[in-house]
Amino acid sequence: MSPRPLRIRKVSNPPIISGLKPYGNKSAHGKTEVVFLQYEEYEAIRLCDFEMLNHLEASVKMNVSRPTVTRIYAQARYKIADAIVTGKQIIIEGGKVYFDSEWYVCSSCGCFFNHPEKQDTVANCPLCGSSQISNCDQIPDDSIDTKPQCDDGCICLACGYEETHQSGNPCVNIICPQCNEPMRRKNSPHSRKFKNAL
């Protein structure tokens, strides 16, 4: 069976350089070797290390899953480390990517436009030159759920009261509203012992 096809990664802009060359290699004999850094790996480095996003935010920007960003990022770090340590030349090319830009709307002339040069900020409408423009497909912040979901529950060992567990908040810190006892994690050794005693 053939593997599942790759999801095409979204890259905002191609890099301004097409590669990097080492200099001053004392043990070099003739040509330097080459490392091919793919566009998606360049984008992962740009989002995670330059724009200081976490992998989840970067994954939304690249339109892939969070583990995929982590994999691409790890590969990119390895390639860059390889280039620095062994004195290889970096060439940025290739990869399964597409380039995308955001849409803006001008409220003065009513036109929609995109902005392919994403490094510069947009200030004026390209048609009428007015500055009354707004981004029309900004992703609302609350659509990105940064808290990991947890199906587990907290349980009170004294009366059996249950509550859904909140990540980052230990169950012992929650006091049962019915009998004022500290709660325990459901299905933990503690609560299992309690179940056996019943």
């Binding site: 191609p14 597409y98 380039f99 995308d100 830009s101 002339c109 009513g110 036109c111 929609f112 436009f113 995109n114 902005h115 392919p116 040069e117 390209p126 048609l127």
Partner: peptide
């Protein structure tokens, strides 16, 4: 057009 860096302007009039 994004890869060619050409700007698109949609003018619905």
């Amino acid at each position: 057009l994004d890869s060619l860096k050409i700007q698109m302007i949609i003018f619905k009039e």
